[in-house]
Every structure is written in structure tokens, then in C-alpha cells.
Design a protein around this nucleic acid. Sequence first.
DNA 1: ATGTCGCATTCCATGCGA
Length: 260
Amino acid sequence: MRITTWNVNSIRQRLHHLIAFLKEDEPDVLCLQEIKAQEDSFPRLEIEAAGYSVEMLGQKTFNGVAILSKHRLEDVRRGLPGDDSDEQARYLEGVVPFGSGVVRVASIYLPNGNPIGTEKYTYKLAWMDRLVSHARDLMKLEEPLVLAGDYNVIPEPRDCHDPLVWANDALFLPQTRAKFRKLLNIGLTEAVRATTEADKLYTFWDYQAGAWQKNNGIRIDHLLLSPQATDKLVSTVIHKHTRAWEKPSDHVPVGVELTG
DNA sequence: ATGTCGCATTCCATGCGA
């Protein structure tokens, strides 16, 4: 069973890439972020024609998350608990069959938080607190769990091309990284780091300043696994080649394979 | 060199978010 996450930066602009990726990689579950669409403009029929069911939480213009799955999602949760006034579409969760049971999967689009010193960064930190709280609740279920998405967090200096460039950025501030470590400290395992110690592994390259050509990237798309999922972890993959496609997303897909 | 995208409106140019 393979579960993959991809920030597509507009589902409508990226539909052909998305269909191409589904056909070449055939993930069982694909979590999407930044679909930038609501239900009425989401290309549901094309995706269903490729053999995937669709659950989504959309929003006009910005944000928006979805989960595509070969098997229909059950027990779907739309939105991150903890703040009923939060209207940004950044969290979607559900379960799919896995072995003799299920795996619970979430598609996460964690706030960017820039510029620091503004309400945007306050919102990011508060959102991370809510994610920690909800993840604690999910851990009590003691089931395979994969929290996948664009975390907008560079976990360590080796996860970016030049740490000095990112020193005062919301993606890399000590306070941001500390909150990310809270997720790990409640017992979640970051899948890519569980399978490799390599540096220069990136999942995002800015459109600007020739970042892709210079391999000036950052690793901000992550899959966090509960112990029950980590026990089944076989491998991870960063689908870097998609960044070289014509008119690409600035993020590439990242996937895990679990046995069973 | 504050350099590129995608979206929406103020609508063929500009502001916002990333």
C-alpha cells in the first residue's frame, strides 16, 4: 500500500500532471494540497475516470485539500478541530482499507506563516498547537495513521540549501521547528528521515531566481506515521522528476510504502 | 535583479499569497 502527498498549486492548472502521475505511479492514496478550487470547479470526473474516488475540502482562491483513493474513504473529517471560527480549508482526514483493518490518512496544508511578526505567524503557531492536540487524540486509537502534507516546516538545517537564507523565515524559525518536534515527541515518525540520512533531499523549489536549476530547495512536505504505521514502513520516495515537467507545481510528490 | 506563478478583481493591469 502506497500513500503519497503532493502540493499541486492549483488542481486546474495541474490536472494533466496529476493524471500523468496517477497513471505512472498508481498510488493507493494521494493527498493533495493547494487545490485552490471549490467543489463546482474541481475536475472530479477526470480523476474518477482515472480510477480514484475523491474527497475534498475546498475554498475559493486559496488553500484547499483533497484525498484521492482507489478505495472510497470512510469516517471522513473535514477541517482541523479546535477553532470553529477557522474558515481556511487546510485539513481533511479519512480511513481506507489496509490489510485486515484500516489506515487513517490526513491531508494537511499547514499555514506558511510569513511574514513573521504578524498575525499570519501567530495563526501558524496556533494551527500547529491544534494539530498536536488532534494528533494526540488520533494516537489514542492505536491504529495505522499517516499525517501527510505540506507542513511548511524545514525540520533541520540539512533540509535546506542554505540555512542562513532561511534563518528568519516562518518555515525555519526555532519556534516553528520546536512545534514540529512536538509532533514527533508524541510518538509520530517522520517517514523520509526514518529511511535515509541523506542531505540535499528537497520537496520544494521556488519558481523564482532559478531555484530549481541551482537545486536551491527545501524539504517541507512530510509524512508522519503512528507506531502502527511505522512498523509497516518499507520505503519512501521523493518524485523529483516531476519538478522538471513543463509548467510544474513548485512542490513534488512524496510517498511511503507500507507492507500489507 | 523584489527574478515566478496562480487567482481574483479593480478586468488586459494590479494586488495578494506563496
